[in-house]
Design a protein around this nucleic acid. Structure first.
Length: 194
DNA sequence: TAGGCCATCTGGTCCT
DNA sequence: AGGACCAGATGGCCTA
């Protein structure tokens, strides 16, 4: 199951527990209010990670409401609302897992000094370029090794495990003398995206 | 100030 | 039935 990669303890996301707990113990004030909007991530950050949902302030006028608030107000009550809140927490956890994966991917992609964080789209693009460059580089090394040893025996390819042996494979059209330009191309691509 | 990027909520759909 | 996944909507933050 994919969920295995996203297993996160409750202690890592205490807000999940707070939400559910709050929904259970004070569903009237929690569910019937528009506090979901108040309990946004940024509120948590700016308020010093105070993860206790704000109580509705009757004196405060409604300056803006989003669709989610409207939905929360009109679509679900009681147990339904409880399930929605739990689903929101799971979705938040899932997205955090996804973002963590993006961070790990960024950490293995070469980047320029003083470069700002790659966007998600750019991260995927750079990863694709980087993998291609590494594959072609490795293909060149393998070919060179085969030429040096004269080895033509069958060997399982590290680059393409389901393909034939490396040494009889023609591989990509790139020659090893172009390898140094691969990474400059990557760097150029990185620059272009900024 | 507009545009890009992001986090979050939400409802629908698929899967176990 | 419940969880995972997805896409749309919304609003906040940041930068040119």
């Amino acid at each position: 199951m994919a969920a295995k990669a996203e297993v996160v303890s409750w202690t890592e996301y205490p807000e999940d527990f707070s939400l559910l707990h709050q929904a259970q113990i004070s569903s009237k004030t929690w569910i019937a209010s528009n506090s979901l909007h108040d309990f946004s991530r940024r509120d948590g950050e700016t308020a010093g990670l105070s993860l206790v949902p704000k109580l509705p302030d009757p004196s405060a006028g409604i300056t803006h409401r989003n669709k989610a608030d409207d939905g929360a107000k009109t679509s679900h009550f009681g147990p339904q609302r409880h399930r929605r809140v739990a689903a929101n927490a799971r979705e938040r956890r899932r997205m955090h897992g996804l973002n963590k994966a993006f961070d790990e991917l960024r950490s293995v992609i070469p980047s320029l000094e003083n470069e700002k964080k790659l966007s998600k789209y750019d991260t995927l693009q750079m990863a694709q370029i980087y993998i291609t460059e590494l594959s072609e580089l490795l293909a060149g090394v393998v070919r060179q090794d085969c030429e040096d040893t004269g080895d033509k025996g069958p060997r399982r390819s590290l680059l393409h495990p389901h393909h034939g042996p490396d040494c009889v494979q023609t591989g990509s059209a790139h020659s090893s003398d172009g390898e140094s330009s691969h990474f400059s191309d990557l760097e150029e691509s990185l620059t272009r995206t900024q």
